[in-house]
Amino acid sequence: MKDAHVFSHYKEALIGAVMDLAEKHPEVVFLDADLSSCIGSTAFQKAYPERFYNCGIAEANMAGVAAGLSSMGLVPYIHSFGCFASRRDYDQLFISVGYAHQTVHVIGSDPGITAQYNGGTHMPFEDIALFRQIPGFVITEPSDAQSLYDLTLQVHENGAPSYMRLPRKGINFRYKPGEVKLGKGVELADGDDVAIIATGVVMVDAALGAEKILREKGIKATIIDLHTIRPLDTELIEKAAAKCGRVLVCENGRYAGGVGEMIAGHLAAVNPVRMAFVNVGERFGEVGNLKYLAPAFGFTAENIADKAEELARK
């Protein structure tokens, strides 16, 4: 189990994990769509030139080629920005991968507002909803470098096709090697007034900030890092809902088809509780840095704390 402190960006943890897999598994191959230098898959290309293919700016073909490679017993990883990795090749992922029972691991970088300077055209908010429509796809969004590394290995071991929302630039460390398990969310704080379920770096960081603000106001919050979106950790969610009776779901994406709707749908069936949501609503993305975008979209500790407080006092 590698310590992710050897990496200095999230993308290095991803490529490091895939290269560690490639060393053990000769069937691992990597395809990129002209974003190799953005994700650092150039390192994979250097180490395994016969197992790396740059498909150019042709995501649909990349997904189809990956499906064909999978049918030959190879295990392809394909990368593009999340908006293109989900939308430009969606029918290919649905039919040639999902419907055809092939295993392809899709890496979609720069989820939601982390696309920053690439702006609204590059800001995937709907990608979770899209992958949720394809039976069998595992969906992850790690919130630190260690869980990113560990989940990449576990998703490979799991064997189902997958989509990872990958933070690309920057790094933080939250977990110890081996601490995070695929499909099992992590309770980062334990309180019984309100449960805040968050996915991804931006939202988990903001939720932890909110927990402090709430604590100062005498509101005790449970904070859950839902790094695996599918399969949903229903056990942990039901436990938190039963304990708090109030659930706030925070995601760097859309409600429709997203994490909040998924959890609401589950709880509606087993234990309806009062819920609230932090997400992008009906907005498209826009250009800017995180300092501008996070408050503009309400993805801050303060906004989450306000929503949680309102929910807790209802």
Binding site: Y53, A60, N61, A63, G64, V65, A66, A67, G68, L69, S70, S71, M72, Q92, S96, A100
Partner: peptide, 8 residues
């Protein structure tokens, strides 16, 4: 595309 992947 799948055929291209299979040949590859």
């Amino acid at each position: 595309s799948a055929a291209v992947g299979i040949a590859l």
